[in-house]
């Protein structure tokens, strides 16, 4: 069976279908209002977006800067001086997809939803 070409084609099809379903699950998953900003694995900010006022702040890492903007209950990476700007292009934080700046090891993500009653109620 392992030598059958059809078996491996089926494996590909299963992986493709499973990841498509997984994508939908990630996009439709629920999340709270609490956002954490992590740098190098450490949580440097925990923010409740429903209570934050609109503002900008800067996070530095080895001399490089990321500017994070909070506006109207949303959060995004406004600017970064890393080479690829993937984090800036990600835009506002939506769903359960974290905003990641790989070069500066900075992550903005929703906190784990299973930490309180909010997750089950909301």
């Amino acid at each position: 069976m392992i030598r059958s070409q059809k078996f491996w084609i089926a494996v590909c099809a299963v992986i493709f279908a499973a990841s498509a379903v997984w994508c939908i699950l990630v996009l439709t998953g629920s999340h709270g209002n609490t956002v954490t900003v992590k740098q190098d694995g450490r949580v440097i900010f925990t923010l409740d977006l429903s209570k934050e006022t609109d503002r900008e702040f800067t996070v530095e890492y080895e001399g490089r800067k990321n500017i994070i903007e909070i506006s109207g209950g949303r959060i995004r990476m406004k600017a970064a001086d890393c080479p690829d700007h993937v984090c800036v292009n990600t835009g506002w934080l939506t769903a359960n997809i974290p905003i990641v700046c790989l070069p500066n090891k900075l992550v903005i993500e929703y906190a784990e939803p299973d930490t309180g009653l909010d997750a089950t109620a909301g």
Binding site: I15, S19, G41
Partner: peptide, 15 residues
């Protein structure tokens, strides 16, 4: 990154 939430990117990368 020492955060497991980046696994959220995996399904998109797989597709």
């Amino acid at each position: 990154m020492q955060t497991k939430t980046v696994i959220a990117y995996l399904p998109f990368l797989l597709v």
